[in-house]
Design a binder for these strands. Sequence first.
DNA 1: AATTTTACTGAATATATATACAGTATAAAT
DNA 2: ATTTATACTGTATATATATTCAGTAAAATT
Lengths: 202, 202
Amino acid sequence: MKELTIQQKKVLQCIKFYIKKTGFPPTRADICRELGFKSPNAAESHLRALEKKGYITIENGASRGINLTENTAEKSQTIPVIGLVAAGSPTLADENIEKHIPYQESLFLSDFDYFLRVKGLSMKDAGIMEDDLVAIKKTSEVRNGDIVVARIDDEVTLKYFQSSGNQIKLIPANDDFDEIYINKETEGFFIEGKSVGLIREN
Amino acid sequence: MKELTIQQKKVLQCIKFYIKKTGFPPTRADICRELGFKSPNAAESHLRALEKKGYITIENGASRGINLTENTAEKSQTIPVIGLVAAGSPTLADENIEKHIPYQESLFLSDFDYFLRVKGLSMKDAGIMEDDLVAIKKTSEVRNGDIVVARIDDEVTLKYFQSSGNQIKLIPANDDFDEIYINKETEGFFIEGKSVGLIREN
DNA sequence: AATTTTACTGAATATATATACAGTATAAAT
DNA sequence: ATTTATACTGTATATATATTCAGTAAAATT
């Protein structure tokens, strides 16, 4: 979809906000009032631009006849589920995506970017079992004690994070597994994100 | 909320359908067209009746200024979260409800009735930790190996279910806890439901 | 260098729309 | 028995609203 200008984005935001607030779309005059325009034609032309770029549809002749396009309306988005394969990075590349599941805002306390399908039992004492879906927020800002998605070359794992200086410890929650020691500057080492929630489908 | 007449229900349904179809509420004339009325005042009076009964609000002077009330709009339903208190049944009585969280259809494989907030670690080896939310489907039809919500008098617990004949075993997933043996016909024993999923909010 | 797009003001207008008023008739509530 | 609510038709109208036309000016594209 074609990119919007800053001003067009403002108008689109204004429409969304107005619908959320009132339950019905704004008139040209309403948009002018909200954004400080002095002519209804300012709103009109922006609306036609948004229509041309596919963000809204306009029912000609109808009052408040603005309809947000499917892509535009943030109804219930979907979140990708990514398999935790031993070899291969958990990127959002299409070939790694197992499926999409409907996403509900405020499902967890923090927002997140994708679900990781857990393989193995290395985190079982943390209550993370095989086939669980762990909600991952993409970030490299993690604290000691966080459960993180760490990549070492092509290997991806879910572990407790513990650092002191340049030394990083990746700690499993299972006595049958060993801790991993690694240096911050090690080539091929990267923190993909951290766990902010979990779903078990049974 | 006050009951609606058949005709008023038709009008309300018409409004909902119109919004779903077009993205904005209908005019009086639109309602007349949909329902075969010949006077805009027919729609007008029905709208005022719906307003009076609290199903919609009307912004006076605004075109299409109809807004569905919170109860009326079937946005995303909410599911109650119930605390697993040692004494006290996990019924859906108001005093037991901790909060409501937004519900997304097909979040789990099966549908469910409420979330149970887990206290204690008696099921930790099953990956069920303190404060987890276990999705419970109300049913007494459970199979061996199911994780069930069992009530014994006023005590409510989450355990593995195992039965042979009249003998029932409630098995914890933690060596520090003991199995519970009980008879099917025991007074005060009841299977409230079974677990069909889990959410951890971190 | 010429054209298109963006980003408006300002005025004018046809029409879409809410809404009031005048009736008619039946059912329900007080 | 009387009032109120339901369920409309039919007419009328003030105004809310979309939309066109005439401009101005800067930025982006071709």
